[in-house]
Design a protein around this nucleic acid. Structure first.
Lengths: 289, 289
DNA sequence: CTCAATGTTGCGTAAAATGATATATTTGCA
DNA sequence: TGCAAATATATCATTTTACGCAACATTGAG
């Protein structure tokens, strides 16, 4: 079945005349005759009773007439609705980031994006940003907000949002001595609250290595917010990007330590697969950053 | 749009893999690729985002997926219903005859026909049988019950039901003298109630011509039943087929006259266009007679 | 860095559709 | 009764379209 044949049939069923119909359809009479015959064969029923002088619809022909009318009309409507919808981008975009990021950067960006592309649904997952890049690589998410890793896979596109220094934090009420220089061996004794994985953990491992010390890991947690929480309770010293602290309701409960050597800065930004940028939806989001 | 392309698209949208889909559809990958591309062009929207490694549906693709599923399923259902309906004859058959005919012959025939072909609708028009044949010739009716005319047009098929003598009838209470022989000149005085047209009128004209008389026409009416009615009221003498009298509730109010010369018999039967017998519905009716 | 996987494109061939013409049949008219 | 017009269909040469094979471009994995 194709729409062309149905159009021919409809036209023919209206004026019941092969010659006139073939002119209206801009085909030769023989082509029309064959088209109808073929339609009848594909359906297995006779649609028209032909006489050398007249043409009339059979019962099945009448049924097809009304059915085909509906079908074609609905198909046209559907096609139009597709085209209308094509003018504005539609679809879904999934974003993975930390709670902090969703509060700080993402809110403004999403509200702007929503205004520009109201038909794109945004699926937001929050959690520990450390596995964000892995999730993007695995295709589980379109975009993540994450720290730029040491070596960015070539398949990834990265757009920096901000640079935030990594800071050591300790509880205000903590009576533990605060080491200030790399020479101090007291680091080995101080309980540390660290990320399980991710660039920060890598940096810290390097940092401890530089001062020839092995950290005394009190707890490994997932999520920067949890680190702040545990530090504020006096469980130990933690390391978080300063921006996490700025957005934390517990920021008054902890203090920033001024250690040397400094940790590298936390390069935070959007991250997606380069090939996903070919998708108009992702591209629209990306180009708005 | 044709159903084949839609089937391809549906299969592809399910497993999102050109290679596997092309095998399932028994076509080459290139044919599949081109078919989808063509579908996209005909709709004016992109249905799938292709990557050399993956395929995913766009928003419009998802819309088409659900639409096409419905469309194809409904089309299949419709096709089946057409085929089911094709086993038994369906349609309409229009019959024109006199009230008498519908009472006498038609009832039994129609009840049998109805039992054999319950899906054929019967449209019954009753009236003066004289114009019946003209109506059939004009295509206004499929079948009529009528007297066989002197010269039957070649395009008509005729199947006799019965032969009924034409009889003169007069009112029982009528005091007018009843002429019994052709010699009588009194015919010219007797008021006659005649059909407007039709074979009976032709026969009567001939009959009066044979006895060298011109009828005194009191009334020209349409419909045999009306003649009986007027005769019974004593308005004059009429001529009707005997079968009309047999089926008339007024048959006790009139008497049959025994005149000479006799009128020819009324050859009554079914009549239809020969070419209409090619229609299975008409043929079914005809072959049942 | 090479290899395998995958969608797409070029090209030659096969199939299908098309239009012009011829044909069979019927209707209308002289 | 016979002839011309009308009409759907069969036939055949031509054009258009679809198809499959092979080659290609791109990408991801080991």
């Amino acid at each position: 079945m194709d729409t062309r044949s149905l159009h021919f049939f409809l036209q023919l069923s209206d004026n019941l005349h092969f010659g006139r119909t073939s002119e209206l359809c801009h085909i030769s009479p023989s082509a029309l005759s064959r088209s109808i015959k073929q339609l009848e064969e594909s359906l297995g029923v006779q649609l028209l009773e032909r006489d050398n002088r007249s043409v009339r619809l059979t019962h099945q022909g009448q049924l097809l007439q009304s059915y085909a009318r509906d079908l074609l009309q609905q198909w046209d409507s559907f096609r139009e609705s597709l085209l209308e919808g094509a003018h504005e981008l539609q679809g879904e975009i999934s974003i993975y980031c930390s709670v902090t990021a969703s509060y700080s950067f993402l809110h403004d960006i999403l509200s702007l994006f929503r205004r520009e592309h109201p038909s794109i649904e945004i699926v937001l997952h929050t959690g520990d940003p450390a596995p964000g890049i892995a999730r993007v690589l695995a295709g589980k998410e379109d975009i993540t907000i994450a720290a730029r890793p040491e070596k960015l896979p070539q398949s990834l596109a990265f757009r920096r949002i901000t640079v935030s220094p990594l800071v050591f934090i300790s509880s205000l009420s903590d009576i533990t001595q605060q080491p200030c220089s790399a020479a101090s061996k007291e680091w080995a004794e101080i309980p540390m609250i660290l990320s399980e994985e991710g660039p920060i953990r890598d940096h810290l491992n390097q940092w401890f290595n530089d001062i020839d010390t092995t950290p005394n890991v009190y707890a490994q947690v997932a999520g920067h917010e949890a680190i702040v929480s545990m530090v504020s309770l006096g469980f130990g010293i933690g390391v978080v990007p300063k921006i996490v602290l700025d957005n934390s309701p517990l920021k008054d409960k902890v203090s920033i330590m001024n250690n040397t050597p400094k940790l590298p800065s936390y390069d935070v930004g959007f991250c997606t697969l380069k090939k996903r940028l070919k998708s108009p939806i992702i591209k629209a989001f990306w180009s708005q950053l």
